[in-house]
């Protein structure tokens, strides 16, 4: 499988009720910032905000399902949360290969999630390994 520096990838993710409720059911994080609109408004947000780590699920999907090979494993990833994400937000995901390490079959991506207002809500880097 050929990957090259500068290769770009994009996906669109929707933070749907299904994803939001599923995250809460599985991980039990019912912090009022994520479940109580008034609480979140009192903290300066427009509404209850989504769990940032839901985006890590989207990253997992991108690496596991969207690349042109299934022979992949995540070595490491970092994420910075820049702006709040709200229920039903549509997020534009963009990733680019910024490093290829043939000696150890590793690839590094930079990525970002943007909302409809073109605000970056999260960005970071992921390093993956290509399995033989």
């Amino acid at each position: 499988m050929n990957f090259e520096l500068g290769n770009k990838f994009e996906e669109c993710f929707v933070l749907s009720n299904e994803v939001y409720n599923g995250f809460i059911v599985v991980f039990k994080d019912k912090n009022p910032l994520h479940t109580n609109n008034q609480f979140a408004v009192n903290k300066g947000f427009k509404n209850k905000i989504m769990h940032g780590n839901i985006l890590n699920g989207f990253l997992s999907y991108f690496i596991g399902e969207c690349l042109p090979t299934k022979d992949v494993i995540i070595h490491s990833q970092e994420i910075q949360f820049k702006n709040a994400v709200y229920l039903n937000d549509e997020l534009q995901f963009n990733a680019e290969i910024i490093g290829i390490y043939d000696s150890v079959n590793a690839i590094e991506f930079t990525y970002s999630f943007k909302n409809k207002e073109e605000l970056i809500v999260a960005k970071g880097k992921i390093q993956i390994g290509l399995l033989k």
Partner: peptide, 10 residues
């Protein structure tokens, strides 16, 4: 080891 090699290459 992979992380070390990548870090050294960088």
């Amino acid at each position: 080891h992979i992380q070390l090699v990548v870090a050294i290459e960088k």
